[in-house]
Design a protein around this nucleic acid. Structure first.
Lengths: 147, 147
DNA sequence: CCTGTTTGACTATCTTTGACCTTTATTAAT
DNA sequence: ATTAATAAAGGTCAAAGATAGTCAAACAGG
């Protein structure tokens, strides 16, 4: 039921969990070999799953002795980055984007983010636009502080 | 006389009953094959029978490793009873009480209920009391419909 | 005749693969 | 010591493959 990409993602996340550091270093070709796939498959997994939106950063070096380092961003980093986006007013679209980031980064459960999506919607708030945007800003900031 | 769509609906519901989780995952083409019909027939059944109004949610993914997940939503009785309590206005205290009920009934995670508590608070909403009460009523009703 | 069902051609999305490219370290030649 | 070749990584991109979605026409039961 799961794709190779999914399995590789899970494997890498387990490695990260077990690592003492907040990062792991791999060899692209070795990993590809371990999963019996082409090396570019590793690149694909990294570029779709281990992106900043999901709370990861990847750096690499080519050439002999090359490597790929996958780093899990700290919760504080993520929250800070998101909080910076929040000004005094937040549109529904912005709020949804922030909630989605929190979900992708596993700082919110799927259920929670689905419920929160709803509560920040224009439809549920049913307030004059300018008011809604300010209420949403308070909601999002309160949430970020509450995680 | 039972249509193919009816049979497929019954079959899926049995699968859901028997599943340990609250959801099942299928392959559209496999199911179509099992019922000797075209894949889009599955889509038809899902979009007519497994909709939120009937207590189901469907999510899917395309591509290799693609799947369709059919999830049964929570029992509606408690939600209905709670929804009856909700009039056009809901105080902060009432909202918190309802959220607590949902948490006790395990229909909300601890995280979710904590976040929601915050977002329905007078402090975060910062609206004139009468307005806040009406906004909260919409929030709570939307939430009850979303669980 | 109406309504809901069934089908299939076409579309959208996600994954897998492979040929070709770039960067870095090491070794060989002068 | 410098430079040139070679080897050893990782990167890019587009094509092929694998699913699922859409929509409208044909069909069937009441």
């Amino acid at each position: 039921m799961w794709s190779l990409a999914d399995e590789m993602e899970r494997w890498l996340k387990v490695m990260l969990e077990e690592a003492e550091e907040r990062f792991i270093e791999i060899r692209r070709s070795e990993l590809a070999n371990h999963f019996s796939c082409v090396p570019s498959q590793v690149t694909y997994v990294l570029s779709t799953r281990f992106v900043p939106e999901r709370g990861y950063r990847v750096i690499s070096r080519r050439g002999a002795g090359g490597f790929i380092r996958i780093e899990r961003l700290s919760e504080a980093d993520l929250l800070d980055r998101l909080a910076e986006q929040v000004t005094g007013i937040v549109s529904e679209a912005e709020a949804v984007e922030i909630l989605n980031h929190l979900y992708q980064a596993e700082l919110l459960s799927e259920d929670a983010s689905r419920h929160l999506d709803l509560l920040v919607s224009d439809e549920v708030l049913s307030l004059p636009p300018a008011v809604a945007d300010r209420v949403r800003a308070r909601m999002v900031l309160a949430l970020l502080a509450n995680i």
